[in-house]
Design a protein around this nucleic acid. Structure first.
Lengths: 127, 127
DNA sequence: CTAGCCGGTATCCGATCGGAAACCACCTGC
DNA sequence: GCAGGTGGTTTCCGATCGGATACCGGCTAG
């Protein structure tokens, strides 16, 4: 697969992202976002840290290892003197984009209902 | 909504269920199974504990409260002298069945690939 | 020589998660 | 009166999760 030239948007996963609210999760806290970062092609470790602001190296390593163990991504240590490691989706990982799209669509469609429900139940408690 | 006469299958969530392996999760550990238990109509607390073998009252209560807070299920204390509480899906909760079906389909289609990946990576470590 | 980037690892920590066990008020059936 | 079912709550506990911090060897640019 060709390298991607387009850089990752640092804001593509806003800290107040709606995805925090949906009950649907893919793997651990960062797995879903990692997969989406990789959908346009391979990325390096340090590239992934840009949009995944706040993730520490240890946690990102753990998430990547888990995804690799499940056959969803492939880790490639590139040849050459320069240290460089690429992560990319396997076909299996890519196939996960389909149910993920369904989940995103659901979240977008019902985002305000989820907000309303949370707000209503917090009002129940305070008032 | 009418009550359901058909009892819940005690084995509908086998402890070695494939769902343990898929990276897709809906809410907490039991939330997805709860939702599926409710798709045919309202169920009582003690009815839910049958297929969800191993869940303690405390944990089930917690999961149900979280689902209720998010507006996915409705809790109804039935009138009458007998103690009876019904849980049922709201329209919002019911709408979640759609992305859940997509997730299940993905899991079924890629079940053996997931198994293979796990087995391969465990062989890497031992051999 | 030195600073800095790269892709991590090691250690520690607090918060959350899920479970075990005991207990509870209320109601029914015997 | 007493056992048993119902729908929980409370307390305690160990495991896991995610994060902070410090550190590392290999490489490159100045």
């Amino acid at each position: 697969m060709d390298r991607v030239t387009k850089p990752l948007d640092p804001d593509m996963f806003d800290p107040v992202c709606p995805s925090d609210l949906t009950p649907i999760r893919f793997g651990d806290k960062w797995a879903g976002m990692i997969i989406r970062c990789l959908e346009d092609g391979p990325r390096r470790f340090s590239e992934l840290r840009i949009p995944l602001r706040g993730v520490t190296a240890k946690v990102l390593t753990g998430s990547l290892r888990a995804l690799e163990r499940d056959g969803l991504i492939r880790r490639t240590v590139c040849a050459g003197p320069e240290r460089r490691v690429d992560y990319e989706l396997t076909p299996l990982g890519r196939s996960l984009l389909e149910p993920m799209a369904a989940a995103c669509e659901w979240a977008e469609q019902h985002w305000d209902e989820l907000l309303d429900a949370r707000e209503a139940s917090s009002l129940d408690r305070t008032g």
